[in-house]
Design a protein around this nucleic acid. Structure first.
Length: 476
RNA sequence: GCACCCAUCGUCUAGCGGUCUAGGACGUCGCCCUUUCACGGCGAAAACACGGGUUCGAGUCCCGUUGGGUGCGCCA
């Protein structure tokens, strides 16, 4: 068995989207599982559309997802000379030829094909023609002289045996008339030269696999094992477009998802291990293999991602959760402001974190739920909180303040004992007093347990917030 | 249009000829817990696209239909 080498080869024409992220993950897991390597290759041969920003976004996205690659990043364009050399070599041995067809001629062929209801295929008009007949002033492209009989077969690790009649395939361009290599050629040469053993990519490349197989054959090179994994669709089943859901991974970060949760969600799209839903990274590496990858496309489901994210959030320690929040802050629109507020309240946040974590699905929700710890008095009440503090409720709060003032020590147990006794004395349910208190203390209708809130806030702050709501001047 | 791929609950999936009156998870609904919201626990509704074969026996194999997807550039 040769060494396992996979690669993730995105083109830098946009951000790292969710499908690309999963492809990277599968490549990474496969390599790690088999003790091999995963290379990163930026396919930047389209000089018009490749951008530095896209490259940065891809690198940043992979780093955030904690998907590492081996060795240096390979920029495909830097290898153009080598690609040209291979094309020339193919020309020299007669497996390729110069094609002088003009863009206009090609366009005419395309239109003719459309009119006849056939798919476009280059008609091979220069395949056997003497280059001496070349029209003056036309720079030729180099095309592969592909076999026209028989079939091209790809034994795909995921899709199984896939065959195309060679008559369906035309002579693809290897080298453009401007001397630059095409994607088809570059991929084959780079995969070969870097010793790629397994090509794992989206099944939108399945048809390309046939063309590439032809190039390998012409070159006499061994074809790497292929694995075309199914695509991820939008929630409505159609192609993941920018309209709905085709977000860059940085968008998922900004939504407050954890990299580990996203990896876990992604690995279960197309791959399974019995009924297991939650996997540590170590388990994924140990368990992942291509034979458990399915062949049908999956739809992206935010609800499930959120659920998983909640599981990961709850499993974190308070310190980890706080660290995750602080790492996220720079990526949030108002992160600076929040960071400043958190700064001197880290201790407080940490204490409250146990109760907060339990209730949040994302880091954004977690931050939002911690808001009551970060704001200054007097609190702004949201509508529901406002509703909870009707006049009678305020009167109740006024009465409970007196009682609370006597509580000492200020602990969960002591405040609970006091308040339960109070509710009984008043002849009301605990909820009747707890809810107005919650509203006054947090400005909202939901929060962690009220006794926890009381304790986290501390006696002076708690009493002050309560007094704010009954119109009694706080004695700060 | 042509080529290729796909097809189990709303969604992700288990199922690799008999153990399937089809299992799990998310979501939905109900109940319990309960100071709110979550968490947790219990329970319910919910699927083998359709039609032919093959076989003693098909969700599982084959063919077709339908539906969906991808590709069809001197883009990647």
């Amino acid at each position: 068995m040769t060494a396992i080498v996979t690669r993730f080869a995105p083109s830098p024409t946009g951000f790292l989207h969710i499908g690309g992220a999963r492809t990277a993950l599968f490549n990474w897991l496969y390599a790690r599982h088999h003790g091999g390597k995963m290379l990163l290759r930026i396919e930047d041969t389209d000089r018009q559309r490749s951008t530095k920003e896209a490259i940065d976004a891809i690198l940043d996205g992979l780093s955030w997802l904690e998907i590492g690659w081996d060795g240096e990043v390979l920029y495909q364009f830097s290898r153009a000379a080598r690609h040209r050399e291979v094309a020339e070599a193919l020309l020299a041995v007669g497996h390729a030829y110069r094609c002088f067809a003009t863009p206009e001629e090609l366009q005419a062929m395309r239109e003719a094909a459309r009119r006849e209801g056939k798919s476009f295929r280059y008609d091979g008009r220069w395949r056997d023609r003497d280059p001496a007949e070349a029209p003056a002033g036309v720079a030729p492209a180099i095309r592969l002289k592909a076999r026209q009989d028989g079939e091209t077969v790809v034994e795909d690790l995921v899709q199984g045996r896939v065959a195309w009649k060679n008559a369906e395939l035309d002579d693809l361009v290897l080298l453009r008339s401007d001397g630059n290599p095409t994607y088809m050629l570059s991929v084959v040469v780079d995969d070969h030269d870097t010793g790629i053993s397994h090509v794992i990519r989206g099944d939108d490349h399945l048809n390309n696999a046939a063309r590439q197989a032809q190039i390998y054959e012409a070159l006499g090179w061994e074809i790497p094992r292929m694995a075309h994994i199914p695509l991820i669709h939008g929630p409505d089943g159609s192609k993941l477009s920018k309209r709905h859901g085709a977000l860059g991974v940085e968008a998922y970060r900004a939504m407050g998802f954890l990299p580990a949760a996203l990896r876990n969600y992604l690995v279960r799209l197309g791959w399974s291990h019995g009924d297991q839903e939650v996997f540590t990274t170590e388990e994924m590496v140990a368990l992942f293999d291509l034979d458990r990858v399915g062949r049908s496309a999956a739809r992206f489901d935010f609800a499930k991602l959120e659920s998983l994210n909640g599981i990961y959030l709850r499993a974190m320690s308070n310190d980890e959760a706080l660290a995750a929040i602080e790492q996220l802050l720079p990526h949030l629109p108002d992160g600076r402001k929040i960071a400043a507020r958190i700064n001197n309240k880290r201790e407080l946040l940490n204490t409250a974190m146990s109760g907060l974590k339990e209730r949040a699905k994302t880091l954004v929700e977690l931050i939002d739920s911690a808001n009551y710890l970060l704001v200054d008095r007097p609190l702004e009440l949201d509508d529901k909180a406002q509703g909870l503090l009707a006049p009678e409720a305020r009167a109740l709060v006024a009465r409970v303040i007196k009682l609370l003032e006597t509580v000492d020590p200020w602990t969960v147990e002591a405040t609970e004992t006091a308040m339960r006794a109070f509710a009984e004395r008043e002849g009301v349910k605990l909820a009747a007093v707890a809810q107005p208190l919650r509203a006054a203390l947090t400005g909202r209708s939901t929060s962690p347990g009220i006794f926890d809130v009381l304790t986290v806030l501390g006696k002076p702050e708690s009493l002050a917030r309560l007094k704010d709501q009954v119109g009694v001047a706080a004695t700060a």
